[in-house]
Write a protein that binds this DNA or RNA. Structure first.
Lengths: 197, 197
DNA sequence: GGAATAATGTAACACCGTTACGCAAAGGTG
DNA sequence: CACCTTTGCGTAACGGTGTTACATTATTCC
């Protein structure tokens, strides 16, 4: 009953895509409800009907970040070398994600312009993506390559290093040609350091 | 000649302190020219006379971050163990700085709510602080503990790991009691991994 | 054909950063 | 002392923001 919905999930994903594009191009400050609505030829009502508020749209962007990561991790095959598998998850999945979606790193990981309780709203998506990485760290633990560390501790450290490398590269603080090598070298040194305790 | 200045550098540092406090308490979005001016019983003119714009005030906060880091690095003594000296620079200087001044990490390092050209305005301060760290990495290189890596590459990796650990801890993603241990373990594993190439 | 219901478009509100304008307070000059 | 110049300060306005109350539209049920 009532007036039929005009703004469906197709409009929602169009708004998300437009929002990500705006943040990539002009920064998060340039993301306004009016602008993202105009970008898809809709009114601001579309945003408020689909996401409730500007914060709701930002939360959806954060969740999107982890859904993309989860899918990419599932698509990356594993080998008989768990140490290298973990490093490649960082280089081929996380680094590629960051380069393709810098705005989603700033929103989903750095929580830019977000209150802590807002970030909690996509924590489930974050935990699911982290579970994929945890699997790879667990295989390292099974091989006795984690020393006295727990899987949780190693996972925490690995994600921290990935995020730090991502932040540096996005700020242009790596030599352009050797960025991938620095990722591989740094993650490799970390897991090598784990092996010898 | 002309009317004497009423807003001197004492007001400037009071504004900076108030601004940092506002960002710590309510986030960067809550930082407005009117609010920071009211916090020190001044008008918005004070901010525009001393810093030119809100961006100018944010740039001054970013520079302050690196000045504090530089002073703290100079104050930390070195021992005969360059590997441990570097790890302690991360744990006792960078981690303490981040816990004491979370707003300055978000501004000076993560460049939150900032255009790239704005961030360039405190790059000199950043480079000077980085030079202190470079000295410690250089002592590691002299001891042959860097493998084939250059000092610049190792410095880049070290700062990335510190920044990633800081981001995780500020988001409350570390177990409260074992955060310092995780910093020390992760930075230690990194330099240990460097040693064995 | 109304009546009820739900979604949409619009206009207003309070806030923001910024700036043009008028005023205030000093020194130089007669 | 009176006047002018110069400089800094306070205020009010402008266009922008997120949000919401209200009127309008479009559907289904009776």
């Amino acid at each position: 009953m009532g007036r039929p919905r005009e703004y469906d999930e197709r409009v929602a994903s169009a708004l998300l895509e437009a929002a990500e594009h705006i943040v990539d191009a002009d920064g998060l400050d340039a993301l306004s409800v009016r602008r993202v609505a105009n970008a898809v030829e809709a009114t601001t009502r579309a945003v408020y009907s689909l996401f409730g508020s500007k914060d709701g749209l930002v939360v959806a962007l954060g969740a999107r970040a982890f859904h993309l990561l989860e899918a990419a991790l599932d698509a990356l095959p594993t080998t008989s070398d768990p140490a290298n598998d973990l490093v490649e998850a960082g280089v081929l999945v996380f680094r590629r994600f960051v380069l393709d979606h810098p705005a989603l790193l700033r929103i989903g990981f750095q929580h830019e312009g977000m209150s802590p309780d807002l970030a909690c709203q996509f924590r489930d998506a974050s935990d699911q993506a982290l579970a994929r990485l945890q699997g790879r760290v667990g295989r390292l633990a099974e091989g006795g390559q984690l020393g006295q560390r727990s899987v949780a501790e190693a996972l925490c450290a690995f994600t921290a290093v990935c995020e730090g490398l991502a932040a540096l590269e996005l700020r242009g603080r790596m030599l352009p040609g050797s960025a991938e090598a620095l990722w591989r070298d740094t993650l490799g040194a970390l897991v090598a350091g784990w092996r010898i305790t």
